[in-house]
Design a protein around this nucleic acid. Sequence first.
DNA 1: CTCCGTGTTGATAGG
DNA 2: ACCTATCAACACGGA
Length: 648
Amino acid sequence: MTGPRVIYWFRTDLRLHDSPALKAALDLEPSAFFPIWCWDSHYVFRARVGVNRWQFLIDCQNDVSQSITKLNPKSKLFVLREPAITLLPKLFKAWKISHLVFEKDVDAYAAERDEEVKKLARDAGVEVIVKSGRTLWDSDEIVKKNGGKPTMSITQLQAAGAKIGPIEKPVPTPKSLPDPGDTPIKFNHTKPESKPDMNEPWRDDAETSFDSGIAGPNGDFAPPTLEECGFKAATTQHRGGESVILELLEERLADEDYTATFEKPKTSPAAFEPQSTFLTSPYLHFGALSCRYFYHRVDAILERRRRAKKPTSSPPASLHGQLLFRDMYFGAQAGLGWSFGQTYNNPKCRFIPWHLPSRVDVATRRSTGGYEVDDAEKEVWLRRWTAGTTGFPWIDAIMRQLRQEGWIHHLARHSVACFLTRGGCYISWERGADVFEELLIDHESACNIGNWQWLSCTAFFAQFYRCYSPVAFGKKWDDDGDYIRKYVPELKDLPKKYIYEPHKAPIQDQKKAGVMIRGDGSETEAGGLKVYPKPMFDFNSRRDICLQGMKSAYNVGFYGDNPKVLDGTWKQAFDDDAEGPTEGDKGGPGGLGSWEDADGAEGESKHDDGPEEEEEEGGRSTTKPRGHKRENSQSKLDFGKGKKKAKK
DNA sequence: CTCCGTGTTGATAGG
DNA sequence: ACCTATCAACACGGA
């Protein structure tokens, strides 16, 4: 018998329920069916993946493997330790494959890789079937229906979705799976380049997951362990897997009032054990939970409630709204490609002269992963924000929960993102996005990038005068400070009165609570007492400086693809004393203070040709003619901020 | 073109 | 506990 021999390539769709791609594979009625995972060098070396997300991925792999084995004891998830690009052509031949099936992915890296894979399959005479399944609607269809443009608002997404039609109903979970064929791997093992290794800081041993051959140390195609990757044990209590989330979901949906009246803005960022939301995001990211399954399960509950004339919530605050926002970000990513993830060359991202701007390669117009330290103090602020030692307990508690558990509430993300960017440090959102990419178990490039742009008011959202206070916002949800006491334990015995501002506690109270408030976070203990740092700046004056910076940047009105941003002449539009690396006239591309941190010789020469005509008025005069809008803004600013400035 | 209402989730004071 | 207006003022979409 010579039926189709099918590879089902699992990627971030680690589930058996509601998988249109898996259904398409099984509809072929394969005579041999190979569920595989390609251990991808991009994930292993090039993407920032903290130890907790690794654990979550491996959980999901093991879970789906066990579910496959339950349906067919001869089968499992065959994890192959080689990137798809080099591995698949060899498998096509060795396993006599006729079809390759996988779920569509849209992030810029995956889209490029998948085009390459399709070409390789064509060359090998293998038919490729790709099905959308990661989002409510196919993101490329959304972009088409949005006039070929990225979806930058929820109304655009909803309008585009309505044109496509109702959200697909879940497809049934398979009740059986065909046998796999033999799985010979007697071909060369191509190990990927291990440098550069973005995850090196997390490894205390060498990465060895590619050293033991394609089928791993036991030759059984098992998922790698954290030890093999050179990682320490994970610290998160969250466990991945399709079976885990399907069970948790039943529990949470069983509370009909909670489900049907869910409004995200009314859920507490300070709640823990249990948290105030569903915590489906990491499962959605790895595909362990289908977003359409979730959507329709919620929909059925809403429908029942409406018929019973009981209250229900609606988008954008409701559960459906949360899934719509996710699709909006995927639609933005699908429409913008690589530029979505950076300021440089991004036509939809406002240009703000942030501190610590990304280095860019002028030739490829991509950010390179590094950044320029325009100001040593801001580098210290970034380090302290990342470590959770800013001296603002609410911020530090959130950042420590993030590091420890890999998941924080959406509003907690708002707090710390606002603080790092437009509402405190005035540091590039790209720095924050990098840290979240590393630490979040639910990191999804579209949502992470989109939310950082939202909070930094560079895209999706613009009301920058709505600024989160690191004191007032937390108090609103958790006046007693239980959340801080949990995640910043050195403060746990401090009276409620001082828990959000410990530096205001008298020395007596500090001693009584067993903590000293002093220094910059570099010491944690002194003379038998715990030490917690003083705030790293005065928040109110920083907020005013940031607000002023945002106003002037908005009035300049550049986006990431503006010629002046691309070639470095953007500096001419900013006053020397504007916040950020704005001093002087000769900037670098994409907000860099100079060309030294940019790649690409072509750019260098552009710079030499460029700004000469400005030399004349390029001095330190503060009355440079910059257009009506800007002058208008400056006068207003000076009026509003006189007091603070005088203090300095 | 302008006007106006609305926008996932601010802070504060006052009822 | 929960509502409202105000602060100062951006962007978008529909009329």
